[in-house]
Design a protein around this nucleic acid. Structure first.
Length: 482
RNA sequence: GGCUCGUUGGUCAAACGGCUAAGACACGGCCCUUUCACGGCUGAGAUGGGGGUUCGAUUCCCCCACGAGUCACCA
């Protein structure tokens, strides 16, 4: 049978990296086996429903490339894919459970329930309505009294198998007679989930390990309904830097925020895959199709992992380097154009120079900001141990360079010619090549690092500007030495 | 508090019960280099504690500690 997985978010807020990972793993489990990936919106909590949240989910899945085969907007044979639109499907199932004695009506109100809390604030329903005579139930139902439907949990112990965590068993006495149908007629998440997963023929359920302890209740429901239990793949928790589960309610970072910060969608996806799963080989950089190929649920780990911005940043840089040059250009050009206004600048060249040097595309701007205007810099910059320079040597190096460059014709003002020229000048003047190049590089960029070497800078800036900056450098050193 | 899960360097993580306990990020050094980056090499850095089982435990069992999750008419 074909694998069918589903990502079933509730549209109550933005999507964070943990949510994305759930969606991703669901997607990968399906696609690795040529299965079907489904999106289903679990909007049974009308109080927490946020309109924009659903759109945000659609958008994030689109941007990250997690295309669903069935779901809102695209349809499918098991629709609708929004729970509020299937609300009539749940009550009959609950009533069936009542008939078989696996569920019962409960008329207890909020106040009474609240009073049940113990010293830890933990409330366990006391089953007051469990033994209600049928006539009384009918009478109260008929009178329009609000009610909920509760699952009846039998005595015993319930075990289930999880692909990641193995066999887990929990005493039924630990479980409450949970509510299946709320007083507003809507199903609870746990119930709707089971009903829909069955209705939609879901074969594999991947979700965070926070559901581990409620899974036995699901199992009991499946058994009571005589439905086949899906394969469970519980995922290790994803922790924030404080060591707590990442959640929207705690204000943790959203995927949209990460994208806004300049992380590439493919980098975020790649990194999300790596948190809690490890590839077989040593390579850690993957595109989505490569993940589909490489992903094996058996390599999912059990222990929680902490989100690490540094590693994400590295992954991002790796993806930038792998970007086709045209693509990188397209992304970097707006930043470069904003950072450099000097006419006649070769933006393509700037893009070329920056691609291997940035962790974020937008960082390219800061690398070339010296082109329009020479930044103010300290004479200290002329001192470089490995280049064997200090301000005095730099002064001589600059003077020699200026002399040589002045004589260079404009038509031959290119990197190769200039490099040869300065190399020769260094030799003639008895200096090391680096003793000319470092000062030139410094005087032209005014920065400790530049995206290209000295003579490339000369080419970039043109003869007039080059000479102007070199002379300014000379004056600067003279001024500070004196 | 009950229950469930987890615990390998700062972080992510490998390791049929068998070796000097992989690799990646970050950090240090070196090389390459027209600076930086890239790339290459390299260094430091880990099995929470205690008991077992075993010829041999990161690995299996028990206890402890610590961490997290969960115990809603939220999902």
């Amino acid at each position: 049978m074909r694998i069918r997985t589903r990502y079933a978010p509730s549209p109550t807020g933005f999507m964070h990296i943990g949510n994305l990972r759930s969606a991703l793993y669901e997607y990968l489990i399906a696609k690795h086996d040529d299965g079907v990936f489904i999106l289903r919106l679990e909007d049974t909590d009308q109080n927490r429903y946020v309109d924009a949240a659903a759109d945000a989910i659609f958008e994030m899945l689109k941007i990250t490339g997690l295309a669903y085969d069935e779901g809102p907007g695209v349809g499918g044979p098991y629709g609708p894919y929004i729970q509020s639109e299937r609300k009539d499907d749940y009550l009959p199932v609950a009533e069936k459970l009542i008939e078989s004695g696996k569920a019962y009506y409960c008329f207890c109100d909020k106040e009474r329930l609240d009073a049940l809390s113990d010293e830890h604030g933990v409330a366990r329903y006391d089953r007051r309505c469990l033994g209600l005579p049928a006539e009384e139930v009918q009478k109260r139902l008929a009178s329009g009294e609000p009610y909920v439907i509760r699952q009846w949990i039998p005595e015993g112990k319930t075990a289930f198998h999880d692909e990641v965590y193995g066999d887990i068993a929990i005493e039924n006495s630990e479980m409450e007679d949970q509510i299946l149908i709320k007083s507003d007629g809507m199903p609870t998440y746990n119930f709707a989930n089971v009903v829909d997963d069955h209705a939609m023929n879901i074969t594999h359920v991947a979700r965070g390990s926070e559901y581990l302890t409620s899974t036995p209740k699901y199992k009991l429901l499946y058994e009571a309904l005589d439905w086949e239990v899906p394969v469970y793949v519980h995922l290790p928790l994803m922790l924030n830097e404080e060591g707590h589960k990442i959640s929207k309610r705690q204000g943790d970072m959203s995927v949209a925020d990460l994208l806004k910060m300049g992380f590439l969608p493919e980098a975020v996806v790649n990194y999300a895959a790596l948190l809690g799963w490890s590839p077989e080989g040593n390579n850690e950089i993957f595109t989505l199709p490569e993940l589909v190929e490489a992903f094996e649920p058996k390599n999912i780990s059990k222990s929680p992992s902490t989100f690490d911005m540094k590693k994400l940043t590295w992954v991002n840089g790796e993806h930038i380097k792998r970007l086709p040059f045209e693509k990188y250009c397209e992304m970097a050009l707006p930043f470069l154009r904003e950072a450099v206004k000097t006419p006649g600048v070769d933006y393509k060249k700037l893009a070329e120079m920056t691609q291997s040097r940035v962790s974020f595309v937008k960082d390219c701007a800061a690398l070339v900001d010296f082109i329009d205007a020479l930044p103010d810099y300290e004479t200290e910059l002329y001192t470089h141990k490995k280049m064997k320079t200090n301000p005095e040597i730099a002064l001589r190096g600059l003077e020699v360079s200026v002399d040589a460059l002045e004589a260079q014709e404009e038509p031959g003002w290119d990197n190769d010619s200039l490099f040869a020229l300065l190399s020769k000048a260094a030799e003639t003047s008895g200096m090391a090549r680096s003793q000319l190049l470092w000062p030139v590089r410094t005087a032209l960029s005014g920065k400790p690092a530049s995206p290209c070497g000295a003579t490339e800078l000369c080419e970039l800036l043109g003869k007039a500007e080059t000479l102007k900056r070199l002379r300014a450098g000379i004056e600067k050193i003279k001024g500070s030495v004196a």
